[in-house]
Write a protein that binds this DNA or RNA. Structure first.
Length: 421
RNA sequence: GUGGGUGUAGCUCAACUGGUUAGAGCACUGGAUUGUGGUUCCAGAGGUUGGGGGUUCGAAACCCCUCACUCACCCCA
């Protein structure tokens, strides 16, 4: 291996990144806040493997979705199995429920999850190849009220995390009964205007007609205003469901925008879909997305149970959130000389057993340097041990903010520490 | 996958039209101060200028390739 190859080989993979110690606290705090909130709504954490049979996503996420057609990390393992690093979470949960017959256990079927997802996409700000999601799923709740409760819970989450400038977009994408006929209508209208549409839109007529609505071209925009909207073509059941969903949101005083052009990138959604965006983010502004999927479970040969849920991008969430780190008080133990060091180590063991965070740095440094370190690192108090302390069995306890220093016995130290001075 | 921009010390940035030994602030280490921190002063260490190739007497600068980041498209979390 040459020098340059060696250098190259030690970089992290494109689109992945390390979460360093000075930012891990945010992730922990986020998970704590989110988990705590979800549990109040009756959700429980579930954890499934990061890789699954490729077939799971082909069937679940959808053969025609962008994710499956071009973004999956798929490989064959040494046993000849076709495996994919999960690009999203929902199919895994569905699989797990069926596999463990969770629907036969005592309800509710409400799950949440934090973990990495993998998509081979072009990285940019807010978009990574390994990224992390919070995922929430509810099963066997047909009523539109649960869709509204999910939106309400999602909103609570963002509020608790201090995310500003939130927009909530909602839509219904119909079901297998009404969506195909709507697509036909839309295609027909678009086809009639084909001549006047841009190249991109002409392609979308066949591949993804719903995307015709968000073309940037002014002329296309004008034309698409005349296209039929899904919300005008829902079957009775879907229309009722959507109206009920919106009515519940109104009752909960949640402001939202009905966005009939809102399409999610996943094929399996039925009826309700929703998306939260934040103005704090820039181009990749979708922070949370979700919806209902009535058919996935039975498509996998499971029970005919509906599902509804959402996913939140943690990286995007954190860049829009404003969290404050919990300050904690800890001790710097400064020692001078070999005997003092041993005394410090023994003392630290006792204090740690009491729950105190103690830091001793095993490097010969002057007291001056050690206090400088303690100050810079933000120690609240310093325990000082030198020859005199070794002899007397007492130590100096110094408060770094007041500068006050007291002489305490080793036995009385734990007690002295509990007095905030 | 398609276009544009940017890569100089751990971080933020300098370095004329291509000119000789690539600098500064912050951070780091040591000393002034061998048992008392925030200021100050002195000193030190730290770079194959993202990597490779080319043009040139001479490249951080210009050209090509590549890698990474970044913005837009696409798509999505």
């Amino acid at each position: 291996m040459s020098e340059s190859e060696r250098k190259k080989s030690i970089q992290s993979i494109k689109g992945t990144k390390d979460i360093l110690p000075d930012e891990v606290w945010m992730w922990q705090k986020l998970e704590e806040i989110a988990g705590n909130l979800f549990e109040r709504y009756g959700y429980r954490q579930i954890r499934t493997p990061v890789f699954e049979a490729t077939e799971l996503f082909e069937k679940g996420t959808g053969e025609t979705s962008d994710i499956v057609t071009k973004e999956m990390y798929s490989f064959r393992d040494k046993g000849g199995r076709d495996i994919t690093l999960r690009p999203e979470y929902t199919p895994s949960v569905v699989r797990s429920i069926i596999e463990h017959r969770l629907h036969l256990r005592t309800p509710p079927l409400r799950f949440y999850y934090f973990g990495p997802m993998f998509r081979y996409d072009k990285p940019q700000k807010g978009r990574y190849r390994q990224f992390h999601q919070i995922d929430v799923e509810v099963f066997n709740e047909k009523d539109a009220a649960i869709d509204a409760e999910l939106v309400e819970m999602a909103q609570q989450l963002l509020i608790r995390l201090g995310v500003k400038d939130i927009h909530i977009l909602v839509n219904s994408v119909g079901c297998t009964a009404c969506r195909p006929s709507y697509h036909q209508h839309l295609r027909k209208s678009a086809d009639q205007a084909r001549e006047n549409l841009c190249k991109d839109c002409r392609r979308k007529i066949d591949t993804n007609p719903l995307r015709l609505f968000d073309c940037k071209e002014e002329s296309c925009r004008k034309i698409s205003e005349g296209f039929p909207l899904i919300t005008d073509h829902l079957c009775q059941e879907c229309r009722d469901h959507f109206l009920a969903f919106c009515a519940y949101l109104d009752e909960l005083s949640i402001s939202y925008l009905v966005e009939s052009r809102l399409v999610r990138g996943l094929d399996y959604y039925t009826k309700t879909t929703f998306e939260f965006t934040s103005g704090a983010l820039g181009a990749q502004d979708a922070i949370l997305g979700g919806g209902r999927y009535d058919d996935m479970m039975k498509q996998f040969g499971g029970p005919d149970i509906c599902g509804t849920g959402f996913a939140v991008g943690i990286e995007r969430l954190l860049s829009a959130a404003s969290l404050e780190e919990n300050k904690r008080e800890w001790l710097y133990i400064a020692t001078l000389g070999a005997e003092a060091r041993i005394m410090g180590m023994k003392l630290a063991r006792e204090l740690r057993a009491e729950g105190w965070e103690c830091l001793i740095e095993y490097r010969e440094r002057s007291l001056n340097k050690q206090l400088g370190r303690a100050h810079k690192l933000g120690a609240g108090r310093v325990v000082l041990i030198g020859d005199e302390e070794v002899r007397s069995g007492r130590v100096q306890l110094k408060n770094m903010s007041s500068g006050q220093q007291t002489d305490v016995s080793v036995l009385g130290l734990a007690e002295a520490l509990n007095v905030s001075d």
